[in-house]
């Protein structure tokens, strides 16, 4: 709640700041390349790979920012309106995307809904398997569907296809180039998927518990894991004391040795749960966004997922081949 208020004030001040500073930084490079604006990191990384040297890809989300509470600022809308291609994840992840596109009148702006044609999972209620149910569930912007589609690598390949189609439509002259890059990306995603399948085959436990918001539902489904998180699909909700206690009981009864914590956000709640139950905390990157340093180093999606695999194997005590 407080965060909302702060963000509103931030936006107001940001307007003034960006009116002064924003325009100058953007105008500096009139490039002939295809200008691509993406929202979240996976799209940015895929678009960067597919676009190669013939497109200039930027990400709307500032590094380090928690993505679920992100709302575009006026300068962001200007950036989108100047681009040739705008890629967003899906309407559950970026419910604001539709409304800002309505305000932009540019025929040559190509828009890609990267989640097109993907079979969505219902957003799992945080306490689906818990006793005292019966309370509200305000998945207001999630519309009941889990937006974290990129964490199923089969979906990720479909997203790559969608993005590639967008590139081809926005810049038909380079369509074959983009298609070739997308094919390479899909091969690498398939290899990643195979590493996950193999790596998670023989594990001491198939339950993985997460002290953050419900992020890894798709990943869990794909590899036959049992996944529980502290909060629902949006990271904005604050857990109740009862939910914390239920999580403590879950950790104890499942006998896991590790609790996973999310990226970027403060791991306080995970650490509290871990302290309560005597388990250790491992990071599991949801890849919504990157921190500034990772971003500047050019960390890629596949690399992040390999780190996740290593942590998952440790957390689930899998046999590493």
């Amino acid at each position: 709640m407080k965060r909302r208020v702060i963000l509103i004030v931030l936006t107001v001040i940001a307007m003034t700041v960006f009116v002064l500073a924003g325009c100058t930084t953007e105008k500096a490079k009139p490039s002939t390349k295809l200008q691509v604006v993406t929202t979240l990191f996976p799209l940015y990384d895929f678009a960067r790979t597919i676009g190669g040297e013939r497109a200039e890809v930027t990400m709307l989300l500032p590094p380090g920012m928690e993505p679920h509470s992100f709302e575009p600022k006026p300068n962001d809308i200007i950036r989108v309106s100047k681009a040739g291609l705008f890629i967003f994840t899906n309407r559950y992840m970026e419910p604001w995307a539709g409304s800002i596109l309505k305000g932009i009148e540019r025929k040559q702006l190509q828009v890609v809904d990267a989640g097109q044609g993907i079979a969505y999972m219902k957003a799992a209620a945080e306490d689906e398997h818990d006793h005292d149910h019966g309370d509200h569930h305000d998945d207001n912007h999630a519309g009941g569907m889990d937006p974290h589609i990129w964490l199923d690598f089969g979906n990720a390949a479909l997203m790559a296809d969608n993005i590639q189609a967008g590139f081809a439509a926005a810049d038909p002259a380079n369509a074959t180039y983009y298609r070739a890059n997308a094919a390479t990306l899909k091969v690498r995603l398939t290899e990643l998927d195979q590493r996950y399948r193999a790596g998670l085959q023989e594990c001491a436990t198939r339950t993985f518990l997460h002290g953050g918001h419900f992020t890894f539902g798709y990943l869990a489904r794909r590899y036959g894991l049992e996944y529980r998180s502290l909060s629902g699909v949006s990271s904005e909700s604050e857990p109740s004391a009862a939910r914390m206690a239920a999580m403590v009981r879950q950790i104890r009864s499942s006998g896991v040795q590790y609790l996973f914590a999310e990226e970027l956000l403060s791991p306080r709640l995970s650490e509290t749960l871990a302290g309560e139950t005597g388990v250790a905390v491992l990071k599991l990157h949801g890849a919504h966004n990157l921190g500034r340093d990772d971003f500047q180093q050019g960390t890629g999606f596949i690399g992040l997922m390999d780190q996740n695999l290593a942590n998952l194997q440790k957390g689930l005590a899998c046999r590493v081949k």
Binding site: I13, E66, D293
Partner: peptide, 16 residues
């Protein structure tokens, strides 16, 4: 805000 835009974002979500 100014520091955030000058520094190119943060490594973590500040508010959290």
């Amino acid at each position: 805000i100014i520091l955030a835009s000058v520094g190119g974002g943060y490594n973590v979500d500040l508010l959290s």
